[in-house]
Design a binder for these strands. Structure first.
Length: 153
DNA sequence: GCCAACGTTGGC
DNA sequence: GCCAACGTTGGC
């Protein structure tokens, strides 16, 4: 079992939006970064736990808990010429981008802001806090995961 | 295989 | 809106 942090811009797709989806599930499409793709293609497994993080917004931070709910499969938006995520170099026979589905798991009593995360020494090693980090999917340790969940409850 | 130019991310 | 940091692209 692994633990992850996945970023989303709440103006585009928030934790609340995930809860409102049919089956509270969303294919995590549109990732066009190879490292993040490799996590989804090679390392993320069903029932891995996810901190759902709001980025590029007024108060960035962890909004809730989700889980990985599918095996990896090709991101269909790469084949869709009308999609902003269309990739002319990808083919159905040889897809370039892969994803997993994400499903709502649990609410937290309170939002855990980035500001709060920065206050705790135990979280100081988080990849999220490393300078210049821009990855939209990051591994977190079990200790980090549990500490943040506890901060929100 | 180098590297300049360019695009994107994301906190502030 | 700014800008640092980083990833990607493409000419050579």
């Amino acid at each position: 079992m692994k633990y992850w942090l996945m970023k989303s811009e709440p103006d585009v797709f928030s934790f609340n939006d995930l809860k409102k989806r049919p089956k509270k599930t969303e294919p995590w499409n549109g990732v066009r970064n190879y490292q993040a793709r490799n996590f989804m293609r090679d390392e993320m497994k069903i029932d891995d736990l996810v901190l759902f993080y709001h980025s590029s917004c007024e108060i960035p931070g962890v909004a809730g808990i989700a889980r990985v709910s599918s095996e990896t499969y090709p991101d269909s938006t790469q084949f869709d010429q009308k999609s902003e995520y269309f990739d002319p170099k990808a083919t159905v026979e040889n897809p370039r981008w892969f994803l997993i589905d994400v499903t709502f798991k649990a609410d937290m009593k309170s939002f855990v802001s980035l500001e709060e995360i920065k206050k705790h020494k135990i979280l100081s090693g988080m990849k999220l806090l490393q300078k210049g980090n821009r990855l939209s999917i990051l591994p977190v340790t079990r200790e980090e995961f549990e500490f943040i969940v506890q901060l929100g409850n």
